[in-house]
């Protein structure tokens, strides 16, 4: 393509355009690399999530089988972030936002989900950001936008829902962690806004007072649902995404509530392993994802 015909060679602008070509080629190469890395990060993150869905414990370390199975995927993610870190520095930090956003979101989904299973808390934005920075290595941090974090958290709720439904279908009860209410994140809580929030939802009355009551997945889902519902997105592409994901997120929480309802009402009647409602729920849940 660099070959120039006789007519082209005579163009006085050829040198200028050749300079542009070089610049544009560099840009396109970077872009391609980032698209590829983003795709690989997405695929590896999905695999990690699949494995985590076989975990049945909450608030405990990830069992060895899952750690072992996921190690190669974490390595892929690290390798991919490292490979593009240099491309996303300085002025280019935001240039390829649209190319990296898919990988970042999916990674956050897997990271927040694993973190939740282990600690029964939501990993903070700063910690998630630091995690991506660590994976990016020496070349400088790949930046994680608040937008990608939020959209990843929305997606994580679908995973927590699947985890809950599976656990309920298998064990006949809603997954509950070892953590007590009192053991939430320290400090900060003092200044927490709107303590009345929790009153808006139909929580069993005993929960707020019983500090030693372990939290169930449903408690957590309701809590994060409130946080996300209070979030006020801007009018933008991101705002549209939030709106769409908000609906899906609410459906996810509803599904768990419905499953728990049928477990409560019919739970004592059902023979072991017979859970038609939950089965149905679970199938549609997978589809919607």
């Amino acid at each position: 393509m660099a070959d120039t015909g006789p007519e082209q060679a005579s163009s006085p602008y050829m040198a200028m355009f050749e300079g542009f070509r070089q610049e544009l080629d560099e840009h396109h190469d970077r872009r391609e690399r980032i698209i590829k890395a983003s795709r690989d990060i997405t695929a590896a993150s999905k695999k990690i999530i699949f494995t985590l869905q076989r975990v049945r414990t909450l608030g405990a370390s990830i069992p060895p089988f899952a750690v072992k199975s996921n190690t190669p995927y974490w390595e892929i993610i690290e390798k991919q972030y490292k490979s593009i870190a240099a491309d996303l520095q300085g002025i280019n930090a935001f240039r390829y936002e649209r190319q990296i956003t898919g990988g970042n979101q999916e990674f956050i989904e897997s990271l927040t989900f694993q973190h939740y299973l282990e600690s029964q808390t939501l990993i903070t934005y700063d910690d998630a950001k630091a995690r991506v920075a660590r994976l990016s290595g020496e070349g400088g941090a790949v930046s994680l936008s608040p937008e990608d974090y939020i959209l990843g958290v929305f997606d994580m709720i679908g995973e927590v829902m699947r985890f809950s439904i599976t656990a309920m279908a298998t064990n006949g009860k809603v997954p509950t962690g070892k953590q007590t209410k009192a053991a939430g994140p320290p400090s900060k809580e003092e200044e927490s806004e709107q303590p009345a929030d929790k009153m808006d939802i139909d929580e069993p009355p005993f929960v707020p007072s019983e500090k030693l009551q372990p939290r169930s997945v449903l408690d957590d889902l309701r809590e994060i649902r409130l946080q996300l519902e209070m979030f006020n997105p801007p009018k933008s592409k991101f705002g549209d995404d939030v709106e769409k994901k908000m609906v899906v997120m609410q459906q996810c929480v509803d599904k768990v509530e419905k499953a728990l309802y049928s477990l409560t009402v019919r739970g004592s009647e059902r023979p072991k392993g017979w859970v038609p409602d939950v089965q149905e729920d679970r199938r549609s849940a997978v589809e919607s994802y």
Partner: peptide
């Protein structure tokens, strides 16, 4: 009050909201 927020540190979303709002202000 600590019992109100078991899973989510509310500061997370306050901080995110502040960041998003700051960007919106730049845009305006």
């Amino acid at each position: 009050m600590a019992a109100q927020h078991g899973m989510v540190d509310p500061a997370i979303f306050q901080d995110l909201q502040a960041r998003i709002d700051a960007d919106a202000a730049v845009r305006d």
